[in-house]
Design a protein around this nucleic acid. Structure first.
Length: 279
DNA sequence: TAACTTGTTTAAAC
DNA sequence: TGTTTAAACAAGTT
């Protein structure tokens, strides 16, 4: 499930693989991925050089050095951007073919098993406004450090549980269901607490937990292909779960050994330790 | 087979 | 009006 850390990794990989290289062809294999302008952009992209690659919330942006429009990707549940042979992938949606270069892959694939992801081609100059106005994204929680006052200001008026508030993309962009549970566990705050009821000390711990979680996750999952968690809670590379509470229900809390519990909030699974996350 | 998975959008409720 | 919740949706896995 690509949340902020995974999208950050994909952007870094994409830059590492493609920055400064001309595109020799772009194939929109599945036209349903196109939420606006992508097929036309693909026709014009031939010969253009990949410029800046950056992230906003859970979106990835690919700029071209000498084109007015950029490619914007959203991965939803199963989307990912990988360096791979498209023939060996079962659910290819877009292929970026680069001019061959020694030491770097020629093919970058937007692979998306459940085909829920989206792509847009948009004027680069209007992207910031598009994210803010059209996609209604709040400010970034990372890498700039956000103090307790920021969190209190963005979320402190919300009456929903803090777990639900953390996932509000219009208040803070990029945190999803996994991040929300993990951050609250690190901060020692109960997911059931109303966001508007948190103490200054709790906002402070939350402010510290967010960059800690994001940085740790990027370090742990960084690599050529994102080590997505599968349904068993173990990563796709066969490693044990990289998370402290997410999908760890029934297992002992890494901090206090009490069993991790699971329940639903707004239709989403929440994982937490009732013993050491204060209500 | 039905339940579960996610972020987003839309509709309904508060 | 603004806020919050619920349902629907995509489609594949368990």
């Amino acid at each position: 499930m690509p949340e902020l850390p995974e999208v950050e990794i994909m952007c870094r990989n994409l830059a590492r693989w493609s920055l400064g290289r001309p595109l020799c062809q772009v194939d929109v294999v599945d036209s349903a991925v196109d939420s606006g302008g992508v097929e036309e952009w693909a026709r014009k992209a031939r010969g253009r050089t990949v410029g800046r690659v950056w992230r906003r919330g859970k979106y990835a942006v690919v700029e071209l050095a000498d084109a007015e429009h950029s490619l914007v990707l959203h991965f939803r549940m199963t989307g990912k951007l990988v360096a791979a042979d498209p023939e060996r992938r079962s659910s290819v949606r877009i292929i970026l073919r680069l001019a061959p270069e020694a030491g770097r892959p020629d093919c970058l694939v937007f692979d998306d098993a459940r085909r829920l992801g989206n792509a847009w081609a948009l004027a680069t100059a209007e992207l910031q406004d598009w994210f803010e106005t059209s996609r209604k994204l709040g400010p970034e929680p990372w890498p700039v450090h956000r103090p307790a006052a920021f969190w209190a200001s963005q979320l402190g008026s919300i009456r929903s549980p803090i777990k639900v508030a953390l996932m509000r993309q219009d208040r803070v962009a990029g945190l999803g269901n996994i991040a929300a549970s993990e951050i609250l566990w690190r901060a020692g705050v109960s997911p059931t607490r109303q966001a508007c009821s948190l103490s200054l000390e709790q906002w402070d711990r939350l402010a510290a937990a967010v960059p800690a979680f994001i940085t740790d996750t990027i370090e742990r999952e960084g690599g050529d292909e994102i080590a997505y968690v599968n349904s068993r809670g173990a990563s796709s590379h066969g490693n044990p779960s990289p998370f402290s509470v997410y999908r760890c229900d029934g297992q002992p809390c890494p901090r206090c050994r009490a069993p991790i519990e699971r329940f639903k909030q707004s239709g989403r699974s929440t994982f937490w330790c009732a013993a050491c996350q204060e209500g």
